[in-house]
């Protein structure tokens, strides 16, 4: 497994086979009222290896996923997350590394060339 330091220095892009879509949040709800205003949209990733399987992502995960375009190193992305969300760098780094390892494990990311 890649060390934290190695991962933080790498750049990744979304696997070209990964289908992902954003859908409007909509009005019909089966859930309890949200604490805050509902998001405008939700994102789903379809795993090409498992074919039609999927994950739901929270706001930070959506931010990470949509920024996986090979421009930023993971460390630079962590900084961007801290700028965008109310989170301390240590937590942001740990959560980002965990999520990226999950995506790599599911072949949804590849290293940017």
């Amino acid at each position: 497994m890649l060390s934290d330091e190695t991962l933080l220095s790498m750049r990744f892009v979304r696997h070209p086979h990964a289908a992902w879509r954003a859908l409007p949040y909509g009005t019909a709800s089966t859930e309890a009222d949200l604490d805050g205003p509902p998001p405008e949209q939700e994102v789903i990733i379809v795993d090409p290896v498992e074919s039609i399987s999927h994950y739901l992502l929270d706001d930070v995960s959506v931010f990470i996923w949509t920024n996986m375009d090979g421009e930023l190193t993971v460390e630079e992305l962590v900084q961007k997350i801290c700028d965008e969300f109310d989170v301390d760098p240590q937590t942001a780094r740990a959560d980002t590394l965990e999520f990226i390892r999950e995506l790599l494990g599911r072949n949804l990311l590849v290293e940017a060339k």
């Binding site: 289908a19 009005t27 019909a28 939700e42 789903i44 039609i52």
Partner: peptide
């Protein structure tokens, strides 16, 4: 159901075996 939960429920019920990017 909202669109995303609806999509989550429908996707596993689609009969689908292809893994190729364009089909998925």
């Amino acid at each position: 159901l909202r669109p995303m939960p609806a999509l989550q429920r429908i996707l596993p019920c689609v009969l689908f075996f292809a893994r190729q990017e364009n089909f998925v």
